[in-house]
Design a protein around this nucleic acid. Sequence first.
DNA 1: GAGCACTGC
Length: 771
Amino acid sequence: MDEINANPYLAHMHSKNSTVSNGANAAFSKLVPSKTTAEQQESAEDSNYNGLTGNLYSDRYKAILKKRRELPVNKQRQKFLDLVHSNQFVVLVGETGSGKTTQIPQYMLLDLLPHTEGKMIACTQPRRVAAMSVAQRVSEELDVKLGQEVGYSIRFEDCTSSKTMLKYCTDGMLLREAMSDNLLSRYSAIILDEAHERTLNTDILMSLVKSIAAKRSDIKIVVMSATLDSEKFQKYFYDAPLLTVPGRTFPVEVYYTPEPERDYLEAAIKTALQIHATEPEGDILVFLTGEEEIEEACKLLRARGDELIRRAGCGPLHIVPLYSTLPPSMQQKIFDKAPEPLTKGGKPGRKIVVSTNIAETSLTIDGIVYVIDPGFSKQKVYNPRVRVESLLVSPISRAAAQQRAGRAGRTRPGKCFRLYTEKSFNNDLIEQTYPEILRSNLGSIVLQLKKLGVNDLVHLDLMDPCAPEVLMRALELLHYLGALDDDANLTPIGHMISEFPIDPQLAKMIISSADYGCTNEVLSVAAMLSVPNVFLRPREAQRAADLAKADFAHMDGDHMTLLNVYHAYKGSSKPDQWCWDNFLQYRSLKSADNIREQLRRVATRCELPLVSNDFTSPDYYPNIRRALTAGYFMQVAHLERNGQYLTVKDNQIVLLHPSSVLERKPEWVVYNEFVLTKRHYIRTVTEVRPEWLLEIAPHYYDLPSFPPCEGRRILEKIALRMMATQELKAKKAKKDKKRKSDKDKDNGKDKSDRKEKKDKREKREKKEKTL
DNA sequence: GAGCACTGC
């Protein structure tokens, strides 16, 4: 409250101290919350004093303000304010360069003055970097220090303070916040940006704000999107009004191939070289699907490019691959300048970037004039029957094709070459990429929804409802993990699991590790399983890489190998050099360390003890594997006598992934991942004892419900043996008890006998006395 | 004896 009172931004307040504040007050005195006009807002911005801080505006502020006024979105400020004043939901479509992401939240800020009620405005982004960089930019535009009045909040960093009134955050972060504040009561407005990307989190958030708005008439919701597919958004938000803001990009001419291409890789290379030979100066961006394809294309482009330069006297080429697992230093090369002509006045050089769809949204490369789009990308698909997520090369959507083409027109007019026919574009491509929620395993999401207080999942109001089977799978998993009870309500363990920002199985594993005295180790394993593959295997040094990995190999399997790697990493003095020497991905390990710290904090909050077993104890590793089993008992495979692994319950034939350190084939294994490629592989595998399965997950190992197979028969035998032992134990216990109770009885009898005798004696004595 | 689109809590 003090902060609020101390804020000169409040028009009604009389400042006790300086004329500075009076100046500020005067500047903002005309702003009445929820009733401002564009003119009033602009005049406040034009003042000499910053109403947020009471300070004089800097020269830099004034320079930036001039540019802000030229943004297309500023011409629509009044219209936007009118819409916001008379509607709870507003849909805004703004193309790249419209200024919506930076300006709209500021208009909302001046209109709502949220801090006068101790509240904030949140603007969500799908990606962390975007949240950070936009917050940085807007803090400059408002002439305040980043993290004060304007801040950001992302997974590993909370850059906000008690003064913060405008917060940029990732949509996942806001979702987490909603789990402890179901009505998002700290916010007077929520702005959902990049909604067209339809990430899992955005979709859930949209559903959430819709239900919150029904309960909170005071909250304003603005949904911002970059595509023209606005009707769907409008309809979803009760026919919300639409504001369209033009963008500021250059025209891109689109070319199609007359005939379908059989080999898109070959066609892409040819097209790139043709552009180089015939088109004017300007860099080229080629979209391919994955690392291997990209490296192959670069190799071919270099070879054939050299020939072109020799034979046809073309300019030099700079060929750069781009994909996410590339080390950052290599990624930086996309910003290199195109090479100079070989001779003075010779033909200009050219840069060719060969990229995955990381260049579609996440990274922007200036200077691109030509885009080559073969029309494919790797997309996640989820198959609920086999409960497997996998990556599949699939045709892109028309929206994605448009997005790719747009990358050619960022600095000047460009050209886009689509390696498919126009007919194919119109008839074969789907309008929009299927939203992620239709392509994902929803285990974690369902748990979060439960935590958000959504009980009726079937009638959950999503923009695209997910398949009932996918929901069933999620509920089934959570039930087996003990996160949901028979009525699908959250159990205490379920509450705990939902606190962890990881897969429910991993969280269960951590929680169970407390029972086995090994939380410290299991936290490390969980962190290592939550990051991209740490083992590098460059094509030119495969053997060396394999040897390096063998140093970490643990005979129990891959999970313990990961633990070895983590421990060794933590013990190294120069981690980056050490990683390089050992063919390990430094980025992944650093991130694992970060995640482990976060998980440790959550574990502490859940009051789990942070403990380790004695390293010399024979149970040190088995206990870690027991905890592993407690999370992954649904992902077990059994080695049949014919030498094949069969997954338990599903009876799928699988192979140990060649990357596994397990050379001997243990009879029972748990696996972390089912990989669907030409064959079915299980990856990241560890040996377990079959007894553990029956002990730790008896509700899942209800053997009569299993399909008949070798594994079942063996488990049945073990179950019988366990039962026999138990019976024996029980019998023995009963016998002991009986013996004990007999003894007790005897004792009792003795006692009573004695008492009787005593009584008799007393009576006799009494009699004798009276006589 | 293989394959790692991209995000995110």
